[in-house]
Lab assay of single mutants.
Amino acid sequence: KVMEIKLIKGPKGLGFSIAGGVGNQHIPGDNSIYVTKIIEGGAAHKDGRLQIGDKILAVNSVGLEDVMHEDAVAALKNTYDVVYLKVAKP
C-alpha cells in the first residue's frame, strides 16, 4: 500500500532515521530506503503514520529508488519545513 505523508519539520528535523540504498543494502538484494528508527517527540512520531519498516519511495519530487544512501540522506536534509513523503507500507 502506497501513501503520501505530509510532515512539518520540527526543531530536530523530521524525526526518523533511514537505512538502505545502493552499496548499503538494508535487506540483501534490495536497494530500497527503509525507516529504521522513529525519534520520540519528533515530527514523524507526532504524526503517527510513518512506521519502522516503511519504505520511502520519494521525498517531495525526488525519487529514492536505486539511489545511494548518501543521496537519500541529502534528499531528506535538503527540504523546507513542509515535506511530502511517498511511502510503501510493508
Rank of each mutant, 00 (worst) to 15 (best):
L57A: 09
L85S: 01
V35Y: 01
A74E: 10
A58Q: 13
K86V: 07
A43I: 09
R49K: 15
T36V: 15
G23K: 06
V82S: 14
V22N: 10
M68D: 12
V87H: 02
D66K: 12
Y84M: 14
H45A: 15
K37N: 15
Y80P: 05
N60Q: 05
G63I: 10
A19H: 09
I33L: 07
I52R: 10
A44G: 03
S32E: 03
V87D: 01
L7E: 00
S32M: 05
V83L: 09
K89P: 09
M68C: 11
V2S: 06
G10S: 13
A44P: 01
K46M: 13
M68G: 14
K86F: 05
G53H: 10
G41S: 10
F16Y: 01
E4K: 14
A43D: 07
H69C: 11
G20M: 02
A19P: 00
V2T: 05
Y84L: 12
G63N: 10
V87F: 09
E70R: 14
L7D: 02
G53P: 00
V87W: 01
G29Q: 11
V22P: 04
V83Q: 03
N31K: 04
K12F: 06
K46V: 10
N78D: 15
V82P: 09
A43Y: 04
P11Q: 08
S32T: 05
N24A: 11
I52S: 13
I38E: 00
G13Y: 03
A75C: 09
H45F: 15
S17W: 11
D66F: 09
M3I: 15
K55F: 02
E40A: 12
E4M: 10
V62T: 12
Y34K: 03
A43P: 15
K9W: 04
K12W: 05
K86I: 07
G10T: 15
I56G: 00
L7W: 02
Q51V: 10
P90N: 15
V35T: 03
A88C: 12
Y34G: 00
G20V: 02
G23Q: 06
K1W: 03
E65S: 14
I8N: 12
L64N: 02
L64G: 02
S17P: 02
A58E: 13
A72Y: 03
Y34D: 01
Y34C: 07
L64D: 01
G53D: 05
V22M: 10
D81L: 07
G29N: 08
H69W: 07
N31H: 12
I52Y: 08
L85E: 01
D81K: 11
G48K: 15
R49A: 13
E4N: 15
K86T: 12
I38A: 00
L57I: 14
M3T: 08
